[in-house]
Structure formats: structure tokens, C-alpha cells
């Protein structure tokens, strides 16, 4: 009887769900990689190097790197305190605040641009005042930064919030019980432990800002960022003109991803 049972068990084909998962996930990965490989194969390396010397491409890359860095910095300065508050507050309305933070993530980028124009556009009170002060908030680097910060900063807040939440509160209680105030505790205990997650959020925000197109195009078409430059090349020359610039942007994005993967793992685990 026991032998029969064993036989029937071995005879029944079992579905290896891990293999199924790998196959399904593999299809998705192929879907990600195939267009990228195709893009790289479609342009001779010499042409890419040649376009890297194009002043308009260099200007666009400079604008993108500069504005994305500023946007990531602003998102960090304002986003970290908010993330900490969201992670630690027991107020009932934290969910409402979190919903506000996530709003830019779910808005279509062009709608984000329109929303920003209603506040910072030259006809809006704030925008008009800024123009009068000689610091226009549209068609300027400031405009690019405003658009990028709007769409990218939620990445810092959401990721840093999760990072702060992953820090055992007992450690903060221990620190304060040892006579250290809230600020010292945050600086010497919470922030170092949450740093990998925070850096991941900042990197994501930077990458998102680098790739931002819709809101940026609405608020500040000029100075051109890389995505806007790609769009313009596509419109004026066609795909052949857009490909090399797109590849340069992909390289920058991949570099950001490498940084992300390097810093995202928590060495204290």
C-alpha cells in the first residue's frame, strides 16, 4: 500500500511554480531589454560619440544634470523631514498628507505642468511677481527645477518614509533614554540606519528628474533638457536624430541605477 502511494506520488507531474514565475518574469525582462538593445544596435557608436560633442546636446545634458541635481537636493531637504514626520507621527491625518505627497505620482506629467503654470506661469500672481523681480519661473532653469521637483520629490518622501519606518523605534527610545534629544537621536541613530533607503529614494528622484518630460515641456521648454532635446530632434529630424541623444540619456539613467543598487542594500541587516 505504501509502495503504491509512493509510486502514485512520483508519477503525478507537479507544477514547479518557481519555474513558472521565472518564465513569466523573464518575458517581462525581455520586454524591457529588447527595445534598449535594439536602440543601441540601431546607431553606430561613432555617431553617438559625434553627437556627444554637439553643443546643443552638451547644453541639454548639462541642464538635465544640473536641474536634476538641484531638484533631488530640494526634494531631500524638504522631503526628509516630511518623511520622518509621516513615519513617526501617530496623527490620524498622516494618511491624508501621504495622499497629497503621492498625488504628483498619479497625475499625468502634462497635467502636472498645467497645474504648475496656474501658480508659476507669467500670468499667475506668483509667476508675474517673479518675472517682475527678474527671476522668471517659466522658460528658465528655475522652471525646469520646479517641474522636476514636483514630479520627482514624492520618490524621496515615500522611500525615505519606508526607510525611517524600518528603523526600530526602540533604538530611538534607547537613545533618548540615554539623554540625547530628538535631533541628536535622528542625526546619530535614525539617519545613519535609514541612509541606504534614503539614498535609494534620492537616486530614484534624481533618475525621475533626469527623465522628466511632460511637466518640464509645459513649464520650461527652454532651456532644453535631454528629454526635450530628444523630442525636438525627433520632430525635426525624425527617429535617426533622436536615437543618439536617447542613448546618451539611457547611459545616464543606467549609471543612476547602478548607484541605486549599490546604496540600496542595508549593510546593517
Amino acid at each position: 500500500m505504501a509502495a503504491e502511494t509512493t509510486e502514485s506520488r512520483t508519477a503525478t507531474p507537479t507544477l514547479d511554480w518557481l519555474t513558472v514565475a521565472l518564465v513569466l518574469g523573464g518575458v517581462l525582462c525581455l520586454y524591457y531589454l529588447a527595445p534598449l538593445v535594439s536602440l543601441f544596435l540601431s546607431v553606430p557608436i561613432g555617431e553617438i560619440i559625434g553627437r556627444m560633442g554637439d553643443p546643443t546636446v552638451v547644453n541639454a545634458a548639462t541642464t538635465s544634470l544640473l536641474s536634476a541635481s538641484i531638484s533631488a537636493a530640494i526634494a531631500t531637504v524638504f522631503g526628509l523631514p516630511l518623511a520622518y514626520w509621516l513615519a513617526r507621527s501617530e496623527a490620524r491625518w498622516t494618511n491624508a498628507v501621504l495622499a497629497v505627497v503621492v498625488l504628483p505620482l498619479v497625475l499625468p506629467p502634462t497635467v502636472s505642468g498645467i497645474v504648475l503654470l496656474t501658480v508659476f506661469g507669467p500670468n499667475a500672481p506668483i509667476g508675474a511677481a517673479a518675472v517682475a523681480a527678474g527671476f522668471p519661473l517659466t522658460r528658465s532653469l528655475a522652471g525646469v527645477v520646479l517641474a522636476q521637483t514636483f514630479v520627482a520629490s514624492p520618490f524621496v518622501v515615500v522611500t525615505a518614509k519606508a526607510a525611517f519606518e524600518s528603523v526600530d523605534r526602540t533604538l530611538e527610545h534607547a537613545s533618548r533614554s540615554l539623554g540625547k534629544n530628538r535631533w541628536t537621536t535622528a542625526r546619530r541613530v535614525t539617519l545613519p540606519l535609514a541612509a541606504p533607503g534614503i539614498l535609494a529614494g534620492v537616486t530614484l528622484a534624481f533618475a525621475r528628474a533626469m527623465g522628466e518630460f511632460g511637466a518640464t515641456m509645459m513649464v520650461a521648454y527652454y532651456p532644453m533638457t535631454m528629454p526635450v532635446k530628444i523630442w525636438k530632434s525627433f520632430q525635426s529630424v525624425g527617429l535617426d536624430g533622436a536615437y543618439p541623444v536617447a542613448i546618451i540619456l539611457v547611459v545616464i539613467a543606467v549609471a543612476a541605477l547602478v548607484v541605486l543598487n549599490t546604496v540600496a542594500s542595508n549593510p546593517w541587516d
Binding site: L171, R176, N181, R182, R188, L193
Partner: peptide, 20 residues
């Protein structure tokens, strides 16, 4: 008073050492 301003020190079950 805040925890840091009490003069009481709490030792936790698992020690709560700072892992970093």
C-alpha cells in the same frame, strides 16, 4: 518631561544596541 530630561535610563529586552 522628555525622556532625555529625566535621569532615568531604560535597558531594553534585546539591548537595543545601535547596530551601526
Amino acid at each position: 518631561r522628555t525622556p532625555e530630561d529625566r535621569g532615568t535610563v531604560l535597558v531594553f529586552q534585546d539591548g537595543a544596541l545601535f547596530p551601526h
